[in-house]
Amino acid sequence: MQTLVLVAEHPDFLVLNKPCGLNFHTEDGALGLVELAKLQFAMPLWPVHRLDKLTSGLLLLAKTKQAASEFQELFSQGQVDKYYLAIASAKPKKKQGLIKGDMLKARNGSWKLAKTSNKPAITQFFSYAVQAKRRLFLLKPRTGRTHQLRVALKSLGSPILGDQRYAGEAAERGYLHAYALHFVWHGEPQSFIAEENLDGEFAATAMAEQIRLLAKPWDIPFPRLGAN
């Protein structure tokens, strides 16, 4: 059984670091992250958000139904700040700002970004030219749509490295990592960073140096929504 990395434990929740390539839910007889966590930590756990199979990084699991309900309310009100790292091989259409548009179903379970904004997916981002044909992105989703970040970067002309569903260059893993979480829980600020799983090209010298400069992404002044 795969061992999951525990980042932090609170009386109300666990913070885990999901490996790339692990399904969130059990599929085809292979245990998903939630069931693995229940077995490893020998307790009932409730998922309150999810990560794609391709994505590594921070994931919250509630220890009680009450905590799960409270987290769902925090997420629905946009009170949980999530920060992701991604690597792309192509230069984006713009270096920073806002990616906004309605998410529409495309073929074979994929999605695409429309120019309309009736119920838009919203992502703020910065990008950094790190080395030849490699750019690091710091992403802050303000909504939580399926494949939102993957579609957002494709719309910029910079699909995520290893994300071949969305035209990313082939790689040994998908280079999307749920890097940090920041929220207030019962009056106490909570901040977490996932440094495990920053492997492969995330660990290359120049890339790792840039990531170290982003050690507290919640302190980075993202532009105001509506200012782009």
Rank of each mutant, 00 (worst) to 15 (best):
K53A: 12
G168E: 01
R165P: 00
F71E: 08
K112D: 10
P120Q: 09
G157V: 08
K53Y: 09
K133A: 13
S69I: 07
Q77C: 09
K112A: 13
Q124G: 03
F75A: 00
S117R: 14
T116R: 12
M103K: 08
A90Q: 14
T116Y: 09
G57A: 06
A167Q: 14
F125H: 05
V80N: 10
A68G: 12
M103Q: 13
L98A: 01
Y128G: 01
S127L: 11
A68L: 01
E73H: 13
S158W: 02
P120K: 05
A86S: 12
N118E: 13
L156S: 03
S89K: 11
V151Y: 06
K93Y: 00
A67Y: 02
L149H: 04
L98E: 15
K140Y: 10
Q66I: 13
L60P: 02
S76H: 12
S56A: 09
S89T: 14
A121W: 06
L139T: 01
S158M: 06
K119F: 15
D102N: 10
L161M: 14
A121H: 02
R165S: 08
A90F: 07
L138K: 06
E70I: 00
S158H: 03
K82E: 03
S110A: 13
K94D: 02
L156Y: 04
L139W: 08
V80R: 07
D163Q: 02
L61H: 11
A152T: 05
E73T: 14
T55K: 06
G78Q: 08
Q66A: 15
G109Y: 11
S89V: 03
I122Q: 08
G157R: 03
A90M: 11
R145E: 09
A114F: 04
K94S: 11
K119T: 14
Q77N: 14
F137E: 03
K112G: 11
S76A: 15
V151C: 05
Y84F: 10
E73M: 09
L149K: 03
L113E: 04
K140A: 11
S89C: 13
Q79R: 14
A132E: 15
K82T: 00
F71G: 07
F137D: 03
A152R: 01
A86C: 10
L58D: 09
F125P: 02
Q124R: 12
K93D: 11
Q66Y: 08
Y128P: 02
V151M: 06
L74I: 05
K93A: 15
M103F: 15
A167D: 14
K95Y: 01
G109K: 05
K93T: 12
K133F: 04
Q131W: 00
Q148V: 10
S89Q: 13
G101P: 02
A129H: 10
Y83C: 05
R165Y: 00
L85F: 08
T146L: 11
L58M: 12
R165A: 10
Q66E: 15
I99W: 04
F137S: 01
L156A: 06
N108I: 02
T143F: 13
